[in-house]
Structures are given as structure tokens and as C-alpha cells.
């Protein structure tokens, strides 16, 4: 198993943001986390990336516990996070953003093939290579954020709210890219607010609510359930 999370609890001060959350991601899968605002999806992803430290539970990457490791060490184990809000370095150029991300794999000059893939997937980044990243549009920034994560050559790419604040044409593009990455064998963990999009793309889906896992299963099976929207928006899962 690539990633296993067991009984995760993360607190902000004394307030638990996530409780009793367990899940796993196998190599080659696309897994989606869905849930309303404040459900604890982003908190879970930040814990997985080593930014937030769990107060309970375990996170294992290929059976090795990574709780307490620094974010930069977790990145070296092959986990890349594109966090909510993209967080590109606006004062740096596109080139410089990519240079920062290529550091752990020997620098950008040793990453020709990844860079070529990136320019094939995101031609706009090639055109705007020396522009300040802060001047890119929201959609272009999202592409840069994903490109940066790819340069760390991840085994698992986590993207938190890939479509948030994007024009529909960019959402389409980003999801085409995910499909392409999947065909290349990249494992994906996506956080989505749109249930429809999650069910159409993912192999498996986890539904979080108020910091707890309320439902999980294969996307195809969940898509069949009539009560899914009811659970998402308020009710509890039927036994």
C-alpha cells in the first residue's frame, strides 16, 4: 500500500479538526475526498504532507510511519501536495518557481524529460517562462502549481480543490491533465467539493463531514446510491 492513514486526529489548539479518520491509497489509483467546507479535507491533506502534526493516529508511506517528519522529508519520499489556494511564489518568475521545485531531484537541468512533459501538458508555462508568477491568471497559476509538484517526481500527487475559482475551460483542462497523469501511472489523491466530478474521475471516494469519515467506497458503487446527496448535505449513512 502506498499510503495508509489510521485513526488520524489533528487539532487546532484544543479543537479537533479531524477525528478517527482512516483511509488508504494504493499505487495507480485515483482517490477523491469529498465533503462540504470545513469537513476537514484540507487538514487531512496538510497532515499527510507533514505540515500539520497529528495528535493521534499514524500515517504510513509504504509501511513506514512518517508522523513527525518535516514536510521536505515527506516530499523526498514521493508525496507532493498542491495545497488549497495554489500558493505559487508570486514574486518569482515561472522559471524560478520550477527551479525551487526541481531542487530535490538535482535541479532543473537534470529534469529535461519532466520539463518537456510539463511544457507538453501546460504550453502556457513555456510561453510565460520568464513572467512573474503573480501576473498569471488563476488558471495559469493552477497549472504552475501542478507543474511544480510534478517536478518533485511524486509517486502520489495530492491536489486540494483543483477546480476552485477556475473558469470552466481551465477546469476541463486540469481534469484532462489528471486523466493523462493517470495513464502515465501517477497515483492521485484529489480533494473535491463537486461530488459529480469526483465520482466520474475517481476509483474510490471518501466522504468527510465535520472532521469525521462518514462514507467510503468505490466510485461506481457510490454513484448508484440514492442517498448520497442526502448524506453529503446533512443526513447520516444508512446502515
Amino acid at each position: 500500500m502506498l499510503v495508509e492513514v489510521e485513526d488520524l486526529e489533528v487539532r487546532y489548539g484544543s479543537v479537533p479538526a479531524v477525528r478517527n479518520v482512516s483511509f488508504h491509497v494504493a499505487e495507480g489509483e485515483i482517490v477523491c475526498f469529498i465533503g462540504a467546507n470545513g469537513a476537514g479535507k484540507s487538514t487531512t491533506m496538510l497532515a499527510l504532507a507533514g505540515v500539520l502534526h497529528p495528535t493521534r493516529g499514524d500515517i504510513r508511506i509504504e509501511s513506514r510511519s512518517v508522523v513527525g517528519l518535516a514536510p521536505e522529508d515527506i516530499t523526498r519520499l514521493g508525496i507532493a501536495l498542491v495545497p488549497e489556494g495554489r500558493r505559487i511564489f508570486g514574486g518569482l518568475t515561472v522559471r524560478e518557481n520550477l527551479i525551487v521545485a526541481s531542487g530535490i531531484r538535482g535541479g532543473i537541468t537534470r529534469q529535461r524529460s519532466t520539463l518537456e512533459l510539463i511544457f507538453e501538458l501546460f504550453p502556457i508555462l513555456h510561453q510565460r517562462f520568464d513572467s512573474r508568477a503573480g501576473n498569471l491568471s488563476g488558471g495559469e497559476q493552477q497549472q504552475l502549481a501542478i507543474a511544480r509538484a510534478l517536478l518533485t517526481r511524486p509517486r502520489l500527487l495530492i491536489v486540494d480543490e483543483p477546480s476552485l475559482g477556475l473558469a470552466p475551460k481551465f477546469v476541463e483542462l486540469v481534469y484532462q491533465i489528471f486523466a493523462h497523469l493517470r495513464s502515465n501511472g501517477t497515483t492521485l489523491l484529489l480533494v473535491e467539493q463537486s461530488m459529480r466530478r469526483a465520482l466520474s474521475l475517481a476509483d474510490r471516494v471518501y466522504l468527510l463531514k465535520s472532521g469525521s469519515m462518514v462514507l467510503h467506497g468505490k466510485a461506481a458503487e457510490l454513484a448508484e446510491r440514492d442517498d448520497l446527496e442526502h448524506i453529503y448535505f446533512g443526513g447520516m449513512a444508512a446502515p
Binding site: 514536510p71 495545497p83 511564489f89 518569482l92 518557481n97 525551487v100 530535490i104
Partner: peptide
């Protein structure tokens, strides 16, 4: 410079 702008994000990208 990246760390000066957003230290946590720089670390997520592997900057020590």
C-alpha cells in the same frame, strides 16, 4: 526568496 515569500510552501516543495 521562495522561502521568504512562503516558507511552508517552499518546504512542501522539498526546500530544507
Amino acid at each position: 526568496r521562495a522561502a521568504t515569500e512562503d516558507f511552508t510552501m517552499a518546504r512542501i516543495l522539498g526546500v530544507r
